[in-house]
């Protein structure tokens, strides 16, 4: 068979799968978002209601709460995870026993399931017998009496900590990969010129892994915006709805209240936010060449 046809034929299976399992649902959700469809009242979609579901979505205080929770979560999560992993990666560049030991376990948290991480941290943050709650209280006495998962701010902190724990070792691996490509000569030259270690890190090393940092930031932001699993298993979006992310809110409207039209509209809003951030990021931070490849 000539390559002219073959190249498209080879493309087909994966393309059909990806279009069928992602773009078709997206289109279908957009269509549903313009309809009135409460699954408990009717098995089939009801009247077309135009933008009513969107208008209704923006009127609900729960939506603004979820948006706010998501923004707070994403900001804290991304900043802490990226900063910690960048610092750890810089520490791990040198050879040494402790270094190899730490490198060897970096992969483990990422291979663990987010649902299980949520469950484990719920156990460890239990106010009465949680080992982390007790341990933190022992090191920081003012926190000794905190019932983590029952107080809004602390529940958010627990959620952020659990997700940072899940991600920072993997991000460290990514940064180590980037750092491995930095030529030693550039640092040696800076050293000869009398630069301090801090100056070398900030002015010589970090600029050379700008691209890797940008990719890590984007990756972490996207996954943080989609945060659902540990919200469900760690805080259950509580106390109240103080840790309810947008993804969890969509889930609640769709599969607890079974309001398909409303849930679809919210889901489209969430997708629009993700795509918007994705476009801004790729335009601003990542060099066009790297994306196109």
């Amino acid at each position: 068979m000539p390559d002219r046809i073959m190249r498209y034929l080879l493309l087909m299976p994966a393309l059909v799968i990806v279009l069928g399992t992602t773009l078709w649902p997206l289109g279908s959700a957009i269509a549903t978002s313009f309809r009135n469809w409460r699954l408990k009242r009717s098995p089939v979609p009801q009247s077309w209601v135009g933008l009513d579901n969107y208008a209704f979505a923006f009127e609900e205080p729960e939506f603004w709460n979820a948006l706010q929770v998501t923004v707070v979560f994403v900001t804290l999560d991304v900043m802490i995870a990226v900063a910690v992993s960048l610092g750890l990666a810089l520490l791990l560049r040198r050879a040494g026993v402790l270094q190899s030991l730490t490198r060897a376990v970096l992969i483990l948290p990422f291979a663990m399931s987010p649902a299980l991480i949520g469950v484990s941290f719920r156990f460890m943050f239990n106010g009465e017998y949680g080992v982390l709650a007790k341990g933190i209280g022992w090191f920081v006495p003012p926190l000794a009496d905190v019932i983590w998962l029952a107080s809004p701010g602390y529940a958010m902190a627990a959620l952020v900590l659990s997700d940072v724990w899940h991600w920072f070792p993997y991000l460290t691996l990514i940064f180590l990969g980037g750092l491995a490509a930095v030529p030693v000569e550039t640092e040696e030259a800076a050293l000869i010129d009398g630069a301090t270690p801090w100056q070398i890190t900030r002015l010589v090393v970090l600029p050379q892994i700008k691209g890797v940092i940008a990719v890590a930031l984007l990756l972490k932001t996207i996954f943080a915006l989609k945060m659902f699993d540990s919200v469900q298993t760690l805080t259950g979006s509580g106390p109240g709805i103080t840790t309810q992310t947008l993804a969890h809110y969509v889930y609640t409207i769709g599969f607890v209240h079974y309001d398909m039209g409303h849930a679809s509209a919210l889901a489209i809003v969430l997708t629009a936010i993700l795509v918007g951030i994705g476009i801004v990021y790729t335009r601003l931070v990542i060099p066009p060449k790297a994306v196109a490849r």
Binding site: T22, P25, Y251, G254, T271
Partner: peptide
């Protein structure tokens, strides 16, 4: 790029339909 861009679609969107 489209293949990668599909990863911006959250799981809750995919699962509704």
């Amino acid at each position: 790029f489209l293949m990668l861009a599909t990863q911006f679609i959250p799981a809750v969107v995919i699962i509704l339909p």
